[in-house]
Simulated assay, not measured.
Amino acid sequence: MDLSLFWVPVTLVAAAAQTGRNATQRRLTEKIGTVGATQVRFLYGFPFALIALAVLRLVTAETVPVPNGPFLLYVLGGATAQILATALMLSAMRERAFSVVTAYTKTEPVQVALFGLIILGDHLTPLVALAILIATLGVIGMSMKPGASLTSSGLRPVVAGVVSGAFFALAAIGFRGAILSLGEGSSLMRATTTLVWGLGAQTVILLVWLGLFDRKALFASFSAWKPSLGAGFLGALASQFWFLGFALTTAANVRTLALVEVLMAQAVSHRFLSQATTRREIMGMVLIVGGVALLLLGQS
């Protein structure tokens, strides 16, 4: 059985789970604030990752890979980069520059490709590089409001968005590097092991940070544990499939195909809010679909 394209359905499941997690976190924001809602994906996702690893170990009888020095460095780098990316993005969005920040954050696939080449030696064909560029331009176009420009909100949101995208890219490369550095185990075992260590590191970092600087948000997340469990489960589920995707192919492939999440969110928004689709959004969707089609063509 040919599993060379198995990363495609894996990535689509991850994107769908992340769409659900984002919706859950948005509802939590109203109850426990932005910081509290952000950290539940780690704090409440970590137990589910541990359960997944235990079940996998029981079902497959595989030995859990032993962490090595490079693995720990990659995991810590990826975990820290993801936290910093989220903090930068939320900080910029508080300045009422949501569309601009989102547009520049979505340059992540391009930056993933560059960092993957530099750090991990993940090479791309010209066709795949073109696919990444086209799909990214489509997302940027969809993220902008009609009549707005990429610099209309000033330089600071632009810089914050690009740097946030860079940290998200570094997080993806860090986690893929960690998975690859484990010399033993199946793709699923190495991905799940990395997920446990990654979420564990992020949980410790955020618990210490919130305990020192934002106890109100920390206690609020504890009091809202029931809805937070849902966000944590969906977050862990999405991450499980992201990491499995990273184990099967380059992070650039995974994060480019993941742009279909924008189309999923768009479909949900128009279905439940009855919003009309603008010409700009249609053009963006065409570019995303075209870029994804080129990406898949480049794998054959």
Rank of each mutant, 00 (worst) to 15 (best):
T24E: 05
Q25F: 01
Q25C: 04
R27M: 04
R27N: 03
R27K: 07
L28Q: 00
L28K: 00
T29I: 00
E30G: 10
E30C: 00
K31M: 01
G33F: 05
G33T: 07
T34D: 08
V35G: 07
V35A: 13
V35H: 05
V35R: 10
G36P: 01
G36Y: 02
G36K: 00
Q39C: 02
V40W: 00
R41I: 08
R41H: 03
F42A: 13
F42G: 10
F42E: 09
F42N: 09
L43I: 14
Y44G: 01
F46N: 00
F46S: 03
P47L: 02
L50M: 14
L50C: 14
I51G: 05
I51Y: 04
A52L: 13
L53T: 03
L53I: 03
L53P: 05
L53N: 04
L53W: 00
V55L: 14
V55E: 07
R57S: 15
L58W: 13
L58G: 07
L58N: 10
T60Y: 13
T60G: 13
A61S: 15
A61V: 13
V64L: 12
P65M: 03
P65N: 04
V66W: 04
V66D: 08
V66I: 10
V66G: 04
N68G: 15
G69Y: 11
P70T: 06
F71W: 11
L76G: 07
L76M: 10
L76S: 10
G77A: 12
G77R: 12
G78H: 09
A79E: 04
A79S: 09
A79N: 03
T80L: 15
A81I: 08
Q82S: 11
I83D: 03
L84W: 07
L84Y: 07
A85F: 08
A85K: 05
T86D: 09
T86C: 10
A87Y: 06
L88K: 07
M89Y: 02
M89K: 00
L90T: 03
L90N: 09
S91T: 09
S91K: 05
A92D: 02
A92K: 01
A92G: 14
M93P: 01
M93D: 01
M93V: 03
R94K: 14
R94A: 08
E95W: 00
E95A: 01
E95Y: 00
R96G: 05
R96E: 12
R96L: 06
F98M: 10
S99A: 15
V100M: 07
V100Q: 13
V101A: 03
V101D: 03
V101K: 01
V101E: 02
V101I: 01
T102A: 11
A103F: 09
A103V: 06
A103K: 05
Y104F: 15
Y104V: 08
K106E: 11
K106T: 10
T107M: 15
T107A: 13
E108C: 14
E108I: 13
E108T: 15
P109E: 12
P109Y: 11
L114G: 02
L114W: 01
F115L: 15
G116Q: 08
L117T: 04
I118S: 06
I118D: 06
I119C: 12
I119D: 11
G121S: 13
L124K: 00
L124V: 02
